[in-house]
Write a protein that binds this DNA or RNA. Structure first.
Lengths: 347, 347
DNA sequence: GGTGTTTTGAGGTACGCAACTCATTTTGAG
DNA sequence: CTCAAAATGAGTTGCGTACCTCAAAACACC
């Protein structure tokens, strides 16, 4: 009925005694320091393993006494999603301070590869770990690899550079996110046939391009009766998006679905409501903001596909910390989910 | 460009020096020990606040030197969702051991209020904290309150007893989950009219009852053209559920939607496919298991509404730990989301 | 057997805080 | 002013680990 899950409470001293060696030797084995005969190493490791010995993290942390410094390289500008991540990082300040960790925000133009690469180079050597919202570009890739070579732990955030040697990616699979958007549009329009509009910030952004790819994949293979209109580029701007969508709605009275890949959702929604067609058109967008929340509650937006910014902020910090300490990463915990948010499951 | 987020590294000694008092007095203030004049308390607290001083958790943990014992009271039986929570708890064993925490699993018949209450009483005094999948019943409520009065921290898990004085609830809002299910059924059936079947484990279970309530709420207010059939009780059993649904499908050829509130999804799916109607009927169920994953990929299940068992396991442990240490709880982190899982956003 | 090298032991210090004791100073009431 | 009570200072100990030094022991090689 009661299942014990080990209470251990062994210390290094116990291990030393059981192995018949001194504390120093156990320490050498534990930290892979030289000067121990191979079979002694084996014997000690075996005892450590048999007893499932785990160093007391608090004691280790205290003894190590090192304050870790991390930097988060985030885009300048008013992207609400990024601002939410930054806000959660600030909210963590107490948690961080209590662990003698510091996180510094570095805002830069992540869309200019040269600027981003230069920003990364400038950080080299000053931090134990760096999280970066990265553009996938050869210059950026090289900058990341340089950091890694210099011993800095690097995590890509939200947007990945898979070809680099970054240690980890914290973010969603954007192709899957696009597929999810496609499936939602296709399913929610019901039995109707008609046209589907799609607007993105820019096709040059890797995450947008991937979402578009996933979206088109699903539309082509499963909803081929729906006619996906050519992509519009709203540059993540409300006004521009509104204009483009207004024109689109005017030109195509038979639009039954809209997918906004990036920001500018407020503009799209405004165009929809001003045309008086928010009830007839299925509208799917990304990210949970005050705006998209309101639109969901009003019914103007049918679903928001989102990644939890708080989770991403915490996961990035935890991953950097685990990497810095050479501890294993709990992948299940750090895996970011693609959330489908509708009116009734808003957090 | 670079925004510093405090690196502090202050210690108690620094606070004492700045306040012009001794370490002992700072310690008294920090731990609300008696014997300090009110205005001295105020002065010290002000200095602590001004410097945003945070005791080094590792040092505090080490000095306190207490191993915390927690118990998780979980249902006996083969409920896959509960088994996943237990699996994640076991997976955390390394993490727990490194922090000198122990988590013991106690399996009991949580559906029998007397048995559950007795199990809880039996644990009294032996644990710093208890997480319990609780039945909402006066006897259970009393047992929880007794534990709380005895100084044990109590967290309800998955199923709440809001009328008790439990310290925290880790789980989803089941009314909202039911509403979400209703909205999904209503939206996914499209323009069609017809009947909607609904099957639950038992109306006596609070979480099931709440989901049913939320579901009916949405169906009545927004999809009144759909005819919700009387509730079936499948007792979370595959075979029984299959029989009931088979009979239902036979009796109503115009069923266009099905909602399974509890377990037994495999049985429902089997009935659907054997009737050859899995493509015509919108089917919504709960929880992500190997089974529901397969059904989603096959298209037999249209969406699974789930709560992340790994997140719940970790959140419960973290909340218990924070409560035991009298630390604040990061509500945003511990808040469990209602996940909508479809084929393309499966984790 | 002697030499030099490698391996091991013994021990210390420091990390920052909790928790405690006991002596001393300050305060307030009478 | 006196005296007890309250407030405060000064100090100690221990938590478990990391990291370091130095000496002693074991070993390998010729």
């Amino acid at each position: 009925m009661v299942e014990e899950t080990v209470s251990a409470a062994l210390t290094l001293k116990d291990i030393a005694r059981e192995a018949g060696v001194s504390l120093a030797t156990v320490d050498r084995v534990l930290h892979h320091r030289p000067g121990v005969r191979p079979d002694t190493v084996r014997r000690v490791q075996e005892i450590i393993a048999r007893n499932a010995f785990q160093p007391h993290v608090a004691a280790a942390e205290l003894a190590r006494g090192r304050a870790r410094r991390f930097a988060f390289v985030m885009p300048t500008g008013a992207n609400p999603f990024m601002q939410q991540i930054e806000a959660y990082l600030r909210e963590m300040s107490g948690w961080l301070a209590a662990r003698r960790l510091s996180v510094e925000l570095v805002n830069t133009d992540v869309f200019d590869p040269a600027v981003l690469a230069a920003s990364l180079e400038a950080l080299s050597g000053n931090y134990d770990g760096i999280a970066v919202v990265a553009l996938d570009h050869p210059g950026v890739r090289a900058a990341i690899n340089d950091l890694v070579d210099a011993g800095t732990k690097v995590v890509t955030l939200v947007s990945d550079v898979p070809s680099s040697r970054r240690h980890h990616y914290v973010g969603i699979d954007n192709i899957a996110a696009g597929r999810t958007a496609g499936a939602l549009v296709g399913r929610l329009v019901g039995q109707k046939s008609g046209k589907i509009g799609i607007i993105a910030g820019s096709q040059g952004l890797r995450d947008h391009a991937e979402r578009i790819f996933g979206f088109n994949q699903v539309m082509a293979s499963e909803f081929s009766h729906l006619d996906v209109l050519p992509l519009l580029e709203g540059r993540d701007d409300d006004d521009r998006s509104e204009q483009l969508i207004s024109r689109l709605l005017g030109k195509h009275p038979d639009i039954i679905g809209l997918y906004n890949v990036g920001a500018g959702t407020q503009g799209v929604a405004k165009a929809l409501t001003e045309a008086g067609r928010e009830k007839q058109v299925v509208f799917i967008a990304h990210d949970l903001t005050a705006m998209t929340r309101r639109l969901l509650l009003q019914g103007a937006l049918d679903a928001a596909i989102s990644q939890n910014p708080g989770h991403e902020a915490r996961a990035a910090v935890r991953v950097l910390l685990s990497l810095a300490r050479n501890e294993p990463i709990l992948s299940e915990q750090e895996n970011i989910r693609i959330d489908i948010l509708m009116r009734d499951n808003l957090p």
